[in-house]
């Protein structure tokens, strides 16, 4: 779990930044195949939200999910091993970057389909009410999901049944290459308002602002008052996906990227006197250890490629009959 002290918030963001930088270098070196969707720039959202959660609260994550899962407390060594496709990874090498998740921490999957996590979060929240638990479920999604019908359907159900769900829109300005201006009629906040869900816009580059807004929303959900909606205005410093490094795309200006980089959430967070260097060094050592752990892990045995498909041990027929 992310601690809500200034040092804890800074550490949480530094861990994600260092993890992503490490992952980028492993993509370049070919140790991670398929690439990643880097979270760099958006760290304040995952850390600010998760710092306001209890360990038993749950969340659904996205294709750009490393930050959420780490902020909820995942072991960066096993997370990196998952990205490298090792048996020692969180998902035993069956999920990879887009689906890396630690279910024991309440991460109900990281989803490769935009908006698909929202109804899953609503269902977990519905179950919590049925089970008499006061847990809250967060669903992270981007501005691209604002145009997915299933998100709007889930918002309707959550509002209708007063489910303890927090809808967190990470508006980073772009659905892949499509700008919000070109893709979203109306606005994120107006969509929430249409369902009577209280919504606020937050500076997503300010971890403390995100944490405080989340605290208010979580309190509301825990008290039985139903869902809330946060629009965290943020930016990804890197491309949508690492493949953008190979295909030259020209949908954001250098000036725009620079202007957001000057608002780097890590620079704007004060962890306390002398803390920054200490934390940076500690996180650096942890990541070095994570690389060691990940790359020394065993590759999964191809004979088990369909392991875990069925919980009852049903063995599907092989592609070539023997």
């Amino acid at each position: 779990m992310t601690e809500s002290t200034p040092a804890g918030l800074y550490r949480g963001m530094r861990l994600i930044r260092a993890f992503e930088e490490t992952a980028l270098s492993l993509v370049r070196s070919g140790e991670i195949v398929g690439g990643i969707h880097p979270y760099i720039g958006q760290e304040a959202v995952a850390v600010g939200v998760c710092a306001a959660l209890r360990p038993d609260d749950q969340l659904t994550s996205t294709h750009r999910g490393h930050g959420h899962v780490l902020a909820k407390g995942a072991d960066p060594r096993r997370m990196l091993a998952e990205l490298a496709g090792r048996e020692s990874g969180l998902n035993r090498g069956r999920g990879g970057s887009m689906h890396a998740a630690d279910l024991s921490l309440g991460v109900l999957g990281a989803n490769g389909i935009v908006g698909a996590g929202a109804p899953i979060a609503a269902g977990a929240a519905w179950a919590a009410l049925r089970q008499g638990l006061d847990r809250v479920v967060v669903t992270f999604f981007g501005d691209g999901a604002l145009n997915q019908g299933v998100l709007l359907e889930a918002m309707n159900l959550a509002a209708l049944w007063r489910l303890p769900v927090l809808f967190v829109c990470e508006n980073n300005g772009y659905a892949t290459t499509l700008s919000v201006q070109a893709g979203v009629a109306g606005s994120a906040l107006a969509r929430a308002a249409a369902f009577g869900i209280p919504a606020e816009a937050v500076d997503g580059m300010d971890v403390e602002a995100v944490r405080l807004a989340t605290e208010r929303a979580v309190e509301r959900a825990r008290s039985g008052a139903g869902p809330s909606f946060l629009e965290c205005r943020t930016y990804r410093f890197e491309g949508h996906h690492t493949m953008e490094r190979r295909v030259r795309l020209n949908y954001r200006s250098a000036e725009e990227i620079d202007s957001w980089r000057r608002r780097d959430p890590l620079e704007r967070c004060d962890p306390g006197a002398g803390q920054r260097a200490v934390i940076d060094r500690e996180v650096g050592e942890l990541m070095a250890e994570a690389v060691e752990f990940a790359l020394n892990g065993a590759h999964p045995d191809p004979a088990g490629a369909l392991d875990h498909l069925y919980a009852d041990g049903l063995l599907p027929r092989a592609g070539v009959p023997t």
Binding site: G109, A118, I120, G123, A127, V137, V150, L157, L160
Partner: peptide, 18 residues
């Protein structure tokens, strides 16, 4: 309500929660 996609995945979320 007539929200098949949402209630189908809502059931999944409920299943993941026990």
């Amino acid at each position: 309500p007539l929200s098949e996609q949402a209630f189908t995945s809502l059931a999944l979320g409920a299943a993941l929660a026990g």
